[in-house]
Structures are given as structure tokens and as C-alpha cells.
Design a protein around this nucleic acid. Structure first.
Length: 476
RNA sequence: GCCGGGGUGGCCGAGAGGUUCAGGCGGCGGGCUGCAGACCCGCUAUACAUGGGUUCAAAUCCCAUCCCCGGCUCCA
């Protein structure tokens, strides 16, 4: 099956063919560590994570690099406001970032380069660009000369001339052209600076990414991802820098995800509707948040709100329940026709899942195949009280693998039963007594026990003679 | 001003020329159950912003209009 991806460069779906057969190199723009990451960041990282997992599922060897921007205006200002050092601030929030993405089950990158640890490489790149006539020095700053790069605007569709018209920023008199962008910024009083041929200063934002991407992934990388806001100017400028340097295509496929809104509005500090991952995780479990984030196609807008989270929780629960139900079903040796049918139908859904993912990572459509699998399992188990061993294994494996592609790990998300033995003992005693009451048809008392426990967050479900209990996780 | 993305059933959300229009949630009805839950079945659902056009056939293509959102400035 052919994987198709929507390439921002060209704005159309293309067949995915990596530069080197069987091997994919991905670069994802990581966070600027001046604050906790928000759910919009999380969407971008989850999408990238799924791209990575699915490519691996398809048999590609994946090398995945995602940077940390630890020097930038926002960091400098924030550190100043808080009265702490830049290093301290960056350290705090990069630690928080790793914690947050780990919770969301986003795999760690193979390499996580930090901007401040690659200053010499950036200086070298800038020197080369100056040498090739693409950049010029102006009073301690270095700017990229957009007019020298023919393809400028090919990613975003913005023309350098048009940018001048719309630009509301005050014109920087050091620039030859308003669209030129800084490769190196001279140090202002109170700011940190690194020694360079142009005096003390620090690198521009764009040069960080292109330099580190090329250092770890080579001159032409397969996939570069990020939120759509990065298309311009960030990615446009990365292309200019990298391609001016090598005369080779910098990135084969550019993938950008749409915005996540909150209650219909874009997140912004001024609206006060910024939702960090940490805030969101007070409302739902990490698995639910992740499941919510992939409930729409990555190129469609998605709105974060309580109802949507609730629905995501129910949906995920439906899948997990079916999985657990199958897992808990007793095995038998003999295979019957129903087993054959189940396997072939589940295999058909697996194929649908793959087709959906092959079509530019269509997660909502892929998820619908998972619902079908859940239904098939439930239907089977409604009639069959046992399942043939190999059938069970096969279906479980498919189900778990497909969930795994989406980064939903059943074992990891198992509700932590933070209950001690004493609690369990008492509860089981209570259930036994209740079942005794049920046998005696004392429904009123039996129901009262179930209802009252329900109010306390403990759910009892009678299935024949057995009674299952679970702690209602408000998070799910 | 220049560029871009959208408007699909009560809600969310796939589909991008053609058999009866995914899937989930919610609601209603039924089955199972002592009841409830979970699960299954059915209905809600002959929906695709509006007006034209192309076509044997249009959510899907074309034109116009309305509305929403975004980029052009740090931003996933």
C-alpha cells in the first residue's frame, strides 16, 4: 500500500518516497522553553509522534530529531521578569516539557539538540552564507538577504514584495529589505552573548533549526513537521538558509497541522484562554487527552472543550472495554467457524485502518475501524463464552498494535487502582454479601448497596453470577 | 491589501463526481438483565452555508454571494 502525505510545499497529496529507501528522517520543531507547553503544542507533538509510529509500523527505520530552543527573546524576557537566570528557566521548562510529553506517551526523540549547544555550528553556517553572498553584516547583526534567494516564498506563497506591503512592523534601518531576517543578533545590554566574528551576540531563531536539522539528519531530510503557524516565516526562512547553503532541497515533505482552538477561539495570553497540558490533565487522563487530539484529522481545526473531552473519554473507554473483555475471556483449544469469521473480519478492519493511515494519516477514519473491531469482539463474546486460543491471541495482537500506532497503550492507561488490600477485602466482602442478598431476592438492599457505592465512585456491574467492580475514574 | 483554511444530521467528525451517504456521542425504542450497567439491534439520519452553472449523475467540479477562522509580527 502506498502512503500519501499532504505536502505543504506544493499543497497537494503526494506519494511518500523517502530519500533513502527504507529509512525516514524526521525533524520536528520543538518548544521554546520559557513556559509550560500548551495543548496546541501537544497536538503538534502528538501528530508528529503518530507519523513516526506509523512509519515504523510500515517497516521504515525512523530517525527522529526534535530540538529545544533555549535561547530567544521570550526566554530572556521571562527570565528577567522572574529574576532568575536563563539557564535556570530553560532547564525548568525543558524538564517540564519532557515530563508532559512522556505523560502523553509521546516517544522521546532520538536526538534532542539544544540551540545553546550548537552555537559554533550556527556561526559556521552564517559565515558560509556570508561567503556565498546570501547574508550581510550590519553593525554587529547578520541578516539573510532575501533578494538573493530566488525561491523565497515557495513554501508559504508569500512574495517578498507583498510582505513589504503588509508589514506593520517598524522598518529596521539595518536591513536592506524589510523581508530580510536576522541570522545573528548583536547583544543588547543585559542580554547573554556568545563570541562571534561579528561581536558578541546570539543566533536568530531560524538558523537554530536548520543548522541542527542538517547536522543530525543531513542536507536533505525527509519530513519536517510543525504547526501551520510555523510555515511563515520560520520554515520559509529555514528553507532559504539551508538551500542557499547546499543548493540542495532541504526538506522533501513539509507537514503542518492545523490549530487547536479553545471554546472556538484561538489560544492567546490576552484572551486568558491558554490551556497548558498540565491544566488539561486536571480534566482528563493523558490517554483521553491524546485520544481527543487525534479525533480530528491533523489538518482540520479542532476545538478543545469539556464536551469534546467527555466524548473522547467515552469513545476510548468503549475501545478499552472491548479489549479487556476479550483479554479476560477463557480460552479453548478447538477452533470453530466463528473464530475463523472473527479473524477474517478483524483482518479486514485492520486493512481499513491501514488504508486510512496511508491517506495522509487519517486518524478519525482509522479510529472508526477500531470501533468496528470492538463491535466484532463484543458480538462474538455475546454468543461465545470462550474463544480459541490462537484466535484470541491474533485478535488481541492486532487490536493492541493498532492502538499502539495511535500511541494508546492499554497497559499504561490501566486505571491505577490505588487501593490497598484492606479496602479490597472489605469491598469484596460487601459484594459477597450483596450477592447473597440477590440470591435471596432482597433486591432493595442489594440495589441500595450498588447505588450507594456508585455515589462513592465505585461501580458494580453484575454479569450473571459474577460481579465486577471498578473505581470510576472521573478522568476517563 | 496580499496569501491560506473552513461551513456536512441534535453534537463531534470522515468522505471530495455515481451502488441504500463512515464512525462515535447524545436522545428514543427494542433485546439481554430481578432492576441497573456493560453489550447487541433499530430509529433519530433521503445532512452537506446560499444562489446559479457544468454533467446522465455534485457535499464533491466551475462561478458568484454570505458567514467563520487563520498567516503576512513571537506563536504548534
Amino acid at each position: 500500500m502506498v502512503l500519501k502525505v499532504f505536502n505543504t510545499l506544493g499543497r497537494r497529496k503526494e506519494e511518500f518516497i523517502p530519500v533513502n529507501p527504507g529509512e525516514v528522517r524526521i525533524y520536528v520543531c520543538g518548544p521554546t522553553v520559557y513556559d509550560y507547553i500548551h495543548i496546541g503544542n501537544a497536538r503538534a507533538f502528538v501528530v508528529a509522534d503518530i507519523v513516526r509510529r506509523y512509519l515504523r509500523y510500515k517497516g521504515f527505520k525512523v530517525r527522529y530529531v526534535s530540538n529545544i530552543t533555549d535561547i530567544d527573546d521570550k526566554i530572556i524576557n521571562r527570565a528577567r521578569d522572574l529574576g532568575i537566570s536563563i539557564q535556570e528557566l530553560a532547564e525548568t521548562y525543558s524538564d517540564a516539557y519532557f515530563e508532559d510529553i512522556a505523560k502523553l506517551n509521546i516517544e522521546k526523540a532520538d536526538v534532542t539538540p539544544r540551540a545553546t549547544q550548537h552555537i559554533p555550528e550556527m556561526i559556521e553556517t552564517i559565515e558560509k552564507l556570508i561567503g556565498k553572498g546570501y547574508a550581510y553584516v550590519a553593525d554587529g547583526d547578520v541578516y539573510f538577504d532575501v533578494s538573493k534567494f530566488k525561491d523565497y516564498g515557495k513554501l508559504s506563497g508569500n512574495k517578498a514584495e507583498a510582505l513589504e506591503m503588509g508589514a506593520r512592523i517598524e522598518v529596521n534601518p539595518k536591513k536592506k529589505n524589510p523581508a530580510d531576517f536576522a541570522l545573528w543578533k548583536s547583544r543588547k545590554p543585559g542580554e547573554p552573548g556568545w563570541y562571534s566574528p561579528w561581536g558578541k551576540g546570539r543566533p536568530g531563531w531560524h538558523i537554530e533549526c536548520s543548522t541542527m536539522a542538517q547536522k543530525y539528519l543531513g542536507e536533505t531530510i525527509d519530513i519536517h513537521m510543525g504547526g501551520k503557524d510555523l510555515i511563515f516565516p520560520h520554515h520559509e526562512n529555514e528553507i532559504a538558509q539551508a538551500e542557499a547553503l547546499t543548493n540542495k532541497p532541504f526538506v522533501k515533505y513539509w507537514l503542518h497541522n492545523e490549530w487547536l482552538t479553545v471554546e472556538g477561539e484561538k489560544m492567546s495570553k490576552s484572551l486568558g484562554n491558554f490551556v497548558t497540558v498540565r491544566d488539561a490533565l486536571k480534566m482528563c487522563s493523558p490517554a483521553v487527552l491524546r485520544f481527543f487530539l487525534i479525533s480530528a484529522h491533523y489538518r482540520s481545526p479542532l476545538d478543545f472543550n469539556r464536551d469534546a473531552l467527555k466524548t473522547a473519554g467515552r469513545n476510548l473507554e468503549r475501545l478499552i472495554r472491548a479489549l479487556e473483555r476479550l483479554n479476560g475471556t477463557p480460552e479453548r483449544e478447538t477452533r470453530v467457524i466463528e473464530d475463523e469469521v472473527l479473524i477474517s473480519e478483524v483482518e479486514a478492519e485492520k486493512k481499513k485502518f491501514e488504508e486510512a493511515m496511508d491517506d495522509d494519516f487519517n486518524t478519525p477514519l482509522a479510529i472508526s475501524a477500531l470501533f468496528s473491531i470492538a463491535r466484532l469482539i463484543n458480538n462474538y463474546l455475546n454468543v461465545n463464552k470462550t474463544i480459541e486460543k490462537a484466535t484470541k491471541r491474533r485478535v488481541l495482537k492486532i487490536f493492541i498494535n493498532l492502538l499502539g500506532v495511535l500511541g494508546i497503550e492499554w497497559a499504561k492507561d490501566k486505571k491505577e487502582t490505588r487501593t490497598d488490600e484492606l479496602f479490597k477485602g472489605i469491598l469484596e466482602l460487601l459484594i459477597d454479601v450483596r450477592n447473597e442478598l440477590r440470591r435471596m431476592k432482597k433486591w432493595e438492599i442489594a440495589d441500595r448497596i450498588r447505588d450507594d457505592l456508585g455515589k462513592m465512585g465505585i461501580i458494580l456491574e453484575d454479569a450473571g453470577k459474577e460481579t465486577k467492580w471498578m473505581i470510576k475514574s472521573e478522568k476517563l
